[in-house]
Amino acid sequence: MDPYNIIIKPQLTEKSMNAIDYKNELTFVVRRTAKKPEIKEAFQQLFEVKVERVNTQINSRGEKIAYLKLAEEHSAEDIAVKMGVF
């Protein structure tokens, strides 16, 4: 499956911004039917980084949110800067 069909957009909230700084974690809105391994593979293909784990939840608006914890050798802040978040 195309990575652009799985990862929809970054989730930008105060909580997600703190996760970038303190947990080396990025937060994205993803396709509702996507499984954790698919999300992990899509993110690794798009940004060429190693993902340690993926946690997901469905928010109150019915969107699926993925929390992607990056490996220590990669910086979530660098990825966020490349995406134009900062």
Rank of each mutant, 00 (worst) to 15 (best):
residue 51 V to S: 12
residue 2 D to L: 01
residue 67 Y to T: 04
residue 80 A to T: 09
residue 68 L to N: 01
residue 82 K to Y: 15
residue 44 Q to S: 07
residue 37 P to K: 02
residue 54 V to G: 01
residue 72 E to Y: 04
residue 33 T to M: 10
residue 64 K to F: 07
residue 71 A to I: 01
residue 28 F to N: 00
residue 26 L to F: 05
residue 73 E to H: 01
residue 54 V to S: 05
residue 4 Y to I: 06
residue 34 A to H: 12
residue 75 S to A: 00
residue 54 V to M: 00
residue 59 N to C: 10
residue 38 E to W: 07
residue 55 N to G: 05
residue 32 R to A: 11
residue 29 V to R: 05
residue 78 D to E: 13
residue 67 Y to H: 11
residue 44 Q to I: 02
residue 36 K to T: 12
residue 17 M to E: 13
residue 22 Y to C: 12
residue 46 L to T: 03
residue 27 T to S: 05
residue 86 F to H: 12
residue 32 R to W: 07
residue 16 S to C: 03
residue 86 F to Y: 14
residue 86 F to L: 10
residue 49 V to M: 09
residue 19 A to V: 12
residue 62 G to S: 10
residue 38 E to A: 08
residue 21 D to W: 14
residue 42 A to L: 03
residue 38 E to T: 04
residue 20 I to H: 09
residue 7 I to F: 07
residue 13 T to D: 02
residue 83 M to I: 11
residue 47 F to I: 06
residue 6 I to S: 13
residue 48 E to P: 10
residue 49 V to D: 06
residue 52 E to K: 15
residue 19 A to E: 15
residue 60 S to Y: 10
residue 37 P to M: 07
residue 78 D to T: 02
residue 58 I to F: 06
residue 53 R to V: 03
residue 78 D to Y: 01
residue 13 T to R: 02
residue 27 T to Q: 02
residue 74 H to P: 00
residue 17 M to T: 12
residue 23 K to S: 11
residue 4 Y to M: 04
residue 4 Y to F: 12
residue 27 T to D: 01
residue 63 E to R: 03
residue 58 I to R: 06
residue 20 I to N: 13
residue 15 K to H: 13
residue 26 L to H: 06
residue 12 L to D: 03
residue 42 A to E: 02
residue 33 T to A: 15
residue 15 K to E: 13
residue 47 F to Q: 11
residue 7 I to T: 05
residue 10 P to H: 00
residue 66 A to K: 02
residue 18 N to A: 15
residue 20 I to Q: 07
residue 42 A to K: 00
residue 78 D to F: 01
residue 40 K to C: 05
residue 8 I to W: 05
residue 21 D to Y: 15
residue 15 K to D: 11
residue 83 M to Q: 14
residue 5 N to T: 07
residue 70 L to R: 06
residue 29 V to G: 05
residue 66 A to Q: 03
residue 74 H to F: 04
residue 52 E to P: 10
residue 38 E to P: 02
residue 70 L to S: 01
residue 15 K to P: 04
residue 62 G to I: 08
residue 7 I to V: 11
residue 53 R to K: 14
residue 65 I to Q: 09
residue 64 K to M: 07
residue 78 D to R: 08
residue 26 L to M: 12
residue 76 A to N: 00
residue 35 K to G: 08
residue 57 Q to L: 13
residue 27 T to N: 03
residue 34 A to G: 14
residue 24 N to G: 09
residue 8 I to H: 09
residue 84 G to L: 06
residue 35 K to T: 09
residue 45 Q to W: 10
residue 41 E to S: 09
residue 73 E to T: 01
residue 24 N to V: 12
residue 1 M to I: 08
residue 27 T to G: 00
residue 48 E to D: 15
residue 85 V to E: 08
residue 85 V to Y: 11
residue 48 E to A: 13
residue 80 A to Q: 08
residue 16 S to P: 10
residue 59 N to P: 07
residue 3 P to W: 00
residue 50 K to M: 04
residue 2 D to C: 00
residue 45 Q to D: 11
residue 62 G to K: 08
residue 22 Y to S: 12
residue 9 K to C: 01
residue 47 F to E: 13
residue 52 E to D: 15
residue 51 V to Y: 07
residue 79 I to M: 04
residue 29 V to C: 02
residue 53 R to A: 13
residue 66 A to I: 03
residue 78 D to P: 00
residue 82 K to W: 13
residue 50 K to A: 14
residue 44 Q to M: 13
residue 44 Q to E: 15
residue 11 Q to S: 11
residue 19 A to L: 15
residue 23 K to D: 13
residue 57 Q to I: 08
residue 9 K to S: 09
residue 1 M to T: 06
residue 83 M to T: 05
